[in-house]
């Protein structure tokens, strides 16, 4: 029986995501705020990361014009947007479609299944990625929802649109 993979259920990325090539210096304060707030609100996430708290992760949502760089160190957190042609040195790299990556931080997708279906690509330090995955997955509810809440009504609206595009109504 043909069964659609999780990837096959993914719809198109809404236009506003593709329109994000706003100057990165405008995006950066927002990312700083997000990572510092998460570090303050979810200290247990960092415990699970162990020695990989100081690892540098590149997160590549393929549809975006830039990559994200994450160092989940609660003392010196880093969450930055970098142009693709200036990708910094890193320990691990995670690449996938925007809506799949959103599904992972939304607690709605299974990373192993995305890997099996080849919708998620991992390079570099696999242990760092496994740690990050396990740490994020231990957050009750949705990290995406927390971030959206920080941004107020526009954030909640954006997340709602993205969820509809990704997996249908929740």
């Amino acid at each position: 029986m043909p069964v659609r993979s999780p990837a096959a259920r993914v719809g198109a990325v809404p236009g506003f995501v593709r329109l994000i090539p706003l100057p990165l210096f405008l995006l950066q304060p927002l990312l700083d705020r997000v990572v510092r707030r998460l570090a303050a609100d979810l200290p247990e996430v960092f415990d699970r990361l162990g020695r990989h708290r100081t690892s540098r992760f590149v997160i590549d949502a393929r549809e975006m014009p830039f990559v994200l760089v994450l160092r989940p160190d609660p003392d010196r957190p880093l969450f930055a947007a970098c142009p693709r042609h200036r990708e910094p040195e890193h320990e691990a790299r995670v690449e996938g479609r925007f809506l799949d990556l959103l599904g992972l931080v939304d607690g709605d997708r299974d990373g192993d299944a995305l890997f099996f279906s080849r919708d998620l690509q991992i390079t570099g330090d696999t242990e760092a990625v496994v740690c990050l995955r396990n740490a994020l997955d231990d957050v009750d509810g949705s990290i995406a929802e927390r971030v959206a809440a920080m941004l107020g009504p526009p954030g909640r609206l954006a997340l709602s649109v993205l969820r509809r595009a990704g997996t249908g109504p929740r």
Partner: peptide, 16 residues
């Protein structure tokens, strides 16, 4: 498979 021992390498042909 201890994760620290696992590596995925993507070739120019797209094979992993």
């Amino acid at each position: 498979s201890p994760a620290a021992e696992v590596r995925y390498d993507t070739g120019v042909d797209g094979c992993v």
